[in-house]
Amino acid sequence: MSKKIMVSFRLNGKETDVVVEPRELLIHTLREKCLHTGPHIGCETSHCGACTVDFDGMSVKSCTMLTVQAEGAEVLTVEGLAQGGELHALQEGFMQEHGLQCGFCTPGMLMRASRLLQENPDPDEEEIRYWMAGNLCRCTGYQNIVKAVQYAARKLRGEAVETSHPLMTADTH
């Protein structure tokens, strides 16, 4: 009944064209057409934030956007976070501070935290908890996620961070 529409946007810096029905949700396009399966689906009521991506400088829940709304947009997913094979400070922070267990919320957490730290490079604990409230986690109890964001904030501000994670100690610090 509804004709398909071609939508062009930039996905992690790369020009991307998809053909979708208007009703297709951005999360499904990212996962099923673009094969960026880092963003996850944890609910159908827009609460959990597992699908969070960065969209024109905003953190958005991609389950609550239509792909047709992404025409001309700049979309960043967790797959675009590491640069040149080097982990983003947040990815390193989540490893170092044990900010993930099952890993299902992590891509959304990372994308939300990356926008948060661009808006507020030095958030206190209360600010981190308040501005990360759109992302649910079943595993961690959040405590270590707060520490992970604080670790990344310190590193991004150029302050010293202590890394003990076996995957990172080999080539850093």
Binding site: S46, G49, M58, S59, T64, L116, A133, G134
Partner: peptide
């Protein structure tokens, strides 16, 4: 109102 992501939209 709601949460950060929802408040962006």
């Amino acid at each position: 109102i709601s949460d950060p992501q929802v408040r962006y939209r």
